[in-house]
Design a protein around this nucleic acid. Structure first.
Ligand SMILES: NC(=O)c1ccc[n+]([C@@H]2O[C@H](COP(=O)([O-])OP(=O)(O)OC[C@H]3O[C@@H](n4cnc5c(N)ncnc54)[C@H](O)[C@@H]3O)[C@@H](O)[C@H]2O)c1
Ligand SMILES: NC(=O)c1ccc[n+]([C@@H]2O[C@H](COP(=O)([O-])OP(=O)(O)OC[C@H]3O[C@@H](n4cnc5c(N)ncnc54)[C@H](O)[C@@H]3O)[C@@H](O)[C@H]2O)c1
Lengths: 211, 211
DNA sequence: CGAAATTTGTGAATATTATCACAAGGAATT
DNA sequence: AATTCCTTGTGATAATATTCACAAATTTCG
């Protein structure tokens, strides 16, 4: 049923290749080899080729890859060629940083709804949108047909807001709260494990007797 | 030279176990089994046991793990039992969110220096610290003996600020800029690949014809 | 045009990670 | 104290992921 088994890591790297291709393209180069890409991404050239071949044959032996063609192909493969409306739950410190992040817009992710439960915040405008009460999130998401949600509430509220988003029709969640969300099958959750990363850093530095 | 090869993933999961143990401890339980931990972390019980055994034998057959003992052990293994001074480069949207994040303090990460290059920001106070000009970052870090840095500048500035931090004696970097930093061997970089995560979400949703 | 130089795509070989499955250890129960 | 019931730690096995290495394709250059 699944189109071949493509490693999750390969998908994540696709995003990295796209970013690097953009840089190369802007620098005026028209072709690039797998070893050049690998060098810039800190990977093995064979891995770059394997990753790309999961999605099609983009290269020309003796020459490499057409930068703009490959960039466009990856953009399309990842579904980034059209705008994606997004709902944001939790307009706190992190939520507001995400709201004003240009990089999301550049990639086509448009935040179209914002939810919070703080009466101080509900009703206020942010980035041209009115912050709504999280109680109404399901129906608003349903109305706006939004499929992607970002959770940046405290972890205590994350599961309940996830349920509401899903009830409203959200199919994919980017979760910043340090908690494993329980979701029905078919719903995709991607966690941004920020604290874990910092703690990993602490581990490696401690091990080397640096801290 | 390296003490056994412990998978990076195991280290990251250690951090997850610690978080879950805290929840279980606060709920008043004194012991926990690998299957309970696995259930809550969305993992396989054997994996939980394997992960823990990399670091020591903490369990009692027939009973499981002593919650508080294991929590303390992990905290120590990860070097989180003492305060860790941190330098933050880039006091923009994200940087300011990180600054006011209680979770970092709770985990012992104390931001003691902030650098920016925006004359509007330099000199202003944030969380009780004066934002310094990034030009002076090396010497200030050297003076304060800070070993951990967080980079939340635009990616165009990330490499140069990384160089300065390292020059000042920083050994570990948590990097939010979407770029692969080049660093001397011995310096540890952990990337928070936020855009990649969102793009992955887009990919999986597109593949399922949801977007 | 033909030879040399590149560089892809890929099967095979490694290496790494995750899961299974069970003997052995210890707790709880009678 | 014997029995039953759990649950660990771990060797064996399976699944994944990465790297090697090379034939085939194509460009470049003489
Ligand atoms: N800020 C960071 O740098 C950072 C770093 C790592 C992880 N995180 C995680 O991200 C999440 C957000 O962090 P933050 O610093 O922005 O916290 P915050 O407290 O500043 O913001 C949380 C926001 O969520 C709102 N909220 C609470 N309950 C809600 C509900 N039921 N529905 C909708 N909104 C609700 C609050 O009113 C607040 O505006 C937390 O889970 C935190 O652990 C944050
Ligand atoms: N904000 C987000 O939600 C988000 C999400 C994903 C990734 N990121 C990444 O995080 C980084 C920061 O994002 P942001 O939204 O906070 O950007 P921002 O523009 O709001 O902030 C960047 C800050 O860095 C400062 N700066 C610039 N050059 C500097 C230098 N050489 N030394 C010190 N400081 C310098 C700027 O003055 C500014 O204050 C970027 O690389 C961005 O791609 C941000």
């Amino acid at each position: 049923m699944e189109s071949y088994k493509i490693p999750k890591r390969s998908v994540e790297r696709l995003s990295i290749y796209k970013r690097i291709l953009k840089v190369i393209m802007d620098a005026g180069f028209t072709t690039v080899s797998s070893s050049e890409l690998a060098e810039r991404a800190g990977l093995n050239p064979a891995q770059v080729r394997k990753d790309l071949v999961y999605f099609g044959q983009f290269g020309t032996p003796g020459m490499g890859y057409q930068v703009s063609t490959l960039h466009r192909a990856i953009t399309r493969i990842m579904g980034l060629h059209k705008k994606i409306p997004v709902a944001l739950a939790g307009a706190g410190n992190l939520g507001q940083a995400l709201l004003s992040y240009q990089g999301f817009k550049d990639r086509g992710f448009i935040i179209e709804s914002i939810f919070d439960n703080d009466p101080e915040k509900v009703g206020k405008m942010k980035n041209g949108i009115k912050i709504r009460n999280e109680k109404n999130s399901s129906s608003e998401i349903k109305d706006k047909k939004i499929k992607v949600g970002i959770i940046s509430t405290p972890s205590s509220a994350a599961q309940s807001i996830a349920n509401k988003l899903i009830e409203g029709g959200i199919k994919g969640i980017l979760n910043f709260a340090p908690i494993e969300l329980k979701v029905p099958s078919g719903i995709i959750v991607v966690n941004v494990a920020l604290c874990e990363k910092l703690e990993m850093l602490s581990y490696y530095l401690s091990k080397r007797k640096i801290l």
